[in-house]
Simulated assay, not measured.
Amino acid sequence: MPPTDASADAGTAPVADTGTTSPTARESRIGPVADAGADSEDTLDLHLPDEFVALFGEDTGADGRRGLGATATAGPASASATSAATVEGAGTTTCASEAPPASTIPNPNDLLGDVADWGPISTPAGPLHLVPVRIERDLPIISRWMNDPAVTAFWGLAGPENAIEEHLRSQLVGDGRSVPCMGLLEGTPMSYWEIYRADLDPLARHYPARPHDTGVHLLIGGMNDRGRGLGGTLLRAVADLALDKRPACARVVAEPDIRNTPSVAAFLTAGFRFSAEIDLPAKRAALMIRDRSLRHLL
């Protein structure tokens, strides 16, 4: 299941692990392709198309900046190399003549309604755009974030890049139940997200899941972006975006570590309600839920 500790202001915010969910603190929700079907408890009998169509490609300029193509809905993203708090860009462009390698393109047949097409959303902090991860571009910055001590405690993915690459790739080449994304705020990459089907995740064995429950994990990468309330602001925006783009989804869920007070507080600020404490394989978590029916009240 996704990271459970995504502390909005502590650098991680997982929904389900939304603000700060840590892969370590949770069960792996997506296994390597080679192991697909090996664990019938975690994988439903899903019949997906045999071929995937590359919807997006991405160009990186010589100056290291990422630009969104003509068909993208967000402006160009700039990547600042001044501190570990900055995130590498994650813009996308349409590639008409040549499709990028299948292992690095967003899965157009994901089970979440094509997250790549969700587009930007307005927030009090500025427009936020979730752009599916491209390993060759985003791995260095994500790896740096995951090795930040403040993040490691809850995500549990600290270590060499190849281990983090495996975590990302397992989602990108999986059956589409989880989509890792870079979050661009006002065009600048500053956060890492995982949007996933909580009802198809091992997490569903630990709470009364409902069809189409959507989980969210958030990691705020920049030190300068932590501790100022951004977590709650962005979590609310993304949770509402998921509800808007997935009509069949009635709830967005998260399971931050119960000890991660900033993360739990961020979810409450974002309109999630505390539902229960649940015991997961590597932690005791606070089950946080944002209900469609209550979204305009909380």
Rank of each mutant, 00 (worst) to 15 (best):
L111E: 10
V87G: 14
A74I: 13
G113N: 04
P101H: 09
I105R: 03
S80F: 10
D114Q: 08
D114P: 05
T93D: 05
S80H: 12
E98R: 00
G89C: 08
R66C: 03
D114S: 07
P100C: 09
A81W: 15
G113V: 05
T92V: 00
T94R: 07
A79T: 15
L111G: 12
A99P: 06
D114V: 05
G64H: 02
A72E: 14
T104Q: 08
D110V: 06
D117R: 02
T60K: 04
G67V: 02
S80I: 06
G69Y: 06
D110A: 01
G91D: 07
P106G: 01
A84F: 10
A79R: 11
G75K: 08
D110L: 06
D117G: 11
D117E: 11
A116H: 10
A62F: 08
T94N: 07
R66H: 12
P100W: 05
A81K: 15
S80E: 06
R65V: 04
G89A: 11
G67M: 10
N109P: 09
S80Y: 12
G61Q: 15
A99N: 06
P108S: 12
N109S: 11
L68P: 00
A72Y: 14
D110T: 00
S78T: 02
G69A: 04
N109C: 12
P101N: 04
A96Q: 03
A70R: 14
R65F: 13
G113Y: 06
G61K: 13
P100G: 09
A90V: 12
T86Q: 05
I105L: 11
A85I: 02
A90E: 10
A72G: 15
A74T: 14
T71I: 04
D114E: 05
A90W: 12
G89W: 09
T92F: 03
A62S: 05
A79N: 12
A72H: 14
A77V: 15
G75F: 09
D110E: 02
G67W: 12
T92W: 10
T104F: 10
G113M: 02
S97F: 11
S103D: 14
A96D: 09
A84L: 09
T93K: 11
